[in-house]
Design a protein around this nucleic acid. Structure first.
Lengths: 167, 167
DNA sequence: CTTGGAATGTCAACAAGGCTGACATAAAAT
DNA sequence: ATTTTATGTCAGCCTTGTTGACATTCCAAG
């Protein structure tokens, strides 16, 4: 890569429209790879990407409520409900009525749920690990910085907290 | 962040399962931000994300064929055809029969098509530019390296070529 | 205590955009 | 002349988003 533009141009080549377009396409193509492996597993079961997302975040925060999951996933409660219903019917997720507030449902993975979540997660982590190893630690730090800056502020909140589990 | 694990552990903290999980969630949340602005514009028209993708890649490679677009987007021709048909009917895309091979259709944006593509692209670039500027050039390089390593090889081909336009 | 509103979750119906399968056409390749 | 390739179309299915209507529960104001 060439360095520096004119005199005093503080090395802003990475902000040209062409560089931005490359960034946009990188996101597009990489996201396809990112979801490819779990999607392959899901197609064997009767599930889709939405089920994967639910399993992931229930696993991350056992006992989370439907409402909390809603704000993380950014879909309507009706949409999430359909996914949860099938997961509950199939015995992958358990829904316990809240003790303090009986309107709330607290969500947990069953053993079967944990098994599927692990299978999906392992596949996704395998690719992520390979990419991280190839690119190296400094690249990974940059990757995280850019992605974090690209999130909506509310999403960044969910990303930063890792501990907001049950009640 | 703490540095180094045991003696001789070559600073591989960025490959722990927890770091990988953070990477996975970063992709998820950032992709939402990445598509949010164009989606907002598209919802005013009668179009969706699929139309945006078609417009983007036709704009990048004017004169591209349906088949080529198919392999870039990774969808079925039936699915792409539905999208292209509406774009052509609405006068955003022009489909010209090939001169050398009359089976092929070469795709071009009309003036209206370019206008919409610009609007979508501007919105997306604005966010990408802000993220790049916040994170800085080294982070951007790392971002690109990790994403590139995460792509399927065939997708990486499409990403690397920028010039494979008309015939 | 009762009542009304807010929060939470469920059911029904619809739309976008993936998918497969079957088939038609035209042109290129053999 | 026959086969293969590129494209388009019709029909029908699935997932996953949407809105609208509704039931339940909680809480707070009267």
């Amino acid at each position: 890569m060439a360095e520096g533009g004119g005199p005093g141009s503080e090395n802003l080549l990475f902000l040209t429209d062409d560089q931005l377009r490359k960034g946009i396409e990188a996101m597009f193509f990489a996201y396809r790879g990112f979801t490819a492996d779990p999607d392959r597993i899901l197609s064997h079961h009767a599930y889709g990407r939405a089920h994967h997302r639910a399993l992931h975040f229930i696993n991350r925060s056992p006992g989370t409520t439907v409402n909390n999951l809603l704000s993380i996933l950014g879909v309507t409660k009706q949409s999430l409900n359909r996914v949860l219903r099938s997961l509950i019917e199939d015995g992958l997720v358990e829904s316990r009525v809240g003790t303090r507030d009986k309107r709330e449902r607290h969500l947990y993975l069953t053993e079967n749920g944990q098994d599927l979540e692990s299978a999906l997660s392992d596949a996704q982590r395998r690719r992520m690990r390979a990419a991280f190893r190839t690119a190296g630690p400094e690249a990974v730090a940059g990757f995280r910085q850019v992605l974090e800056a690209m999130m909506d502020p509310e999403m960044r909140r969910h990303y930063e907290d890792t501990k907001e589990a049950a009640s």
